[in-house]
Nucleic acid binder design. Sequence first.
DNA 1: AGTACTACCTGGAGGC
DNA 2: TGCCTCCAGGTAGTAC
Length: 301
Amino acid sequence: MPELPEVETVRRRLEPSLAGGVVRSVRLGLPRLLESGAVERLDDLVGLRCQGVERRGKYLLLRFADPVPPGPGRDRILVVHLGMSGQLTWHPAGQAAIDRFTRMPSGLQVPLGPHTPDRHTHLVVDWENGGKLLFRDPRTFGRLLLASPEDLASLPRLARLGPDALDLDTDTFLARWRDMAGRRSVKAVLLDQSFVAGIGNIYADESCFEAGIRPAARAGALSGPRRAALAAAVRAVLRRGLDNCGTTFRDFRHPDGSEGGNQEDLRVYARGGQPCLSCGSTLKSAVVATRGTVWCPRCQR
DNA sequence: AGTACTACCTGGAGGC
DNA sequence: TGCCTCCAGGTAGTAC
């Protein structure tokens, strides 16, 4: 469930640790997570220096270049998608194993801090500075791709993405809605990464609530003002999620293992059957666009 | 062509 | 306590 706010939070916190570092070794414990792309040899990264971390929608792009120029042709970009349970954590050099725990609302105790490698840790990147970058993903929905800068644009997964939801102005939103809404539900359009990149199930439901629109409503039938309200709602909801450093519902963690805070600010997601925080009506839940969906029958028309 | 649906995967929760 | 079943969901691929 890492969506734009979660992935951007990871990007912001990971970049200071990675940028400038040189890769010493790479181990991939679950080969099927590396999707066949332009380049399929993770060992290519060994000896390269990390130039920075970028984000496109829910994808993270780790840029690497040869530290001894000129080294044309060796540059690589590691593309990471966290799937629904992926965690990228950073272990600084010499840091002892973290044994702090936090208690989830369910009562479950989970480790707080960069995770200790376990059977779900599928990628380990060792750096010359002694740090380690770990990728842990219990559900294994995450994906890794490796590409050269020239081939990046030809990766289908990235080529399909629409404009990033974070810096989407209302005019662009309205134009794309006019062209792409069709006969689908509002929720289906919001989840379509080729419409706008970065929205997932949590922020789709929250955006619909914020705009007072039922997720199952026909997208093409929305009035102009309501479309504009939805555009504003998407921006506000993503911005709030980002300000809260992401939503930790279960698996999401920051690179240092800490949790996001946006779960405290969710109005409808996972609250089916509970009272609407705005009007007190019982929130309804159903499957819309093959996703668990929650809305207020009174506030959302 | 556009839309809808399923496979993939495994931990957690709930029922008995 | 333990076993079983169901559910969660992003994306690609398939079916209609």
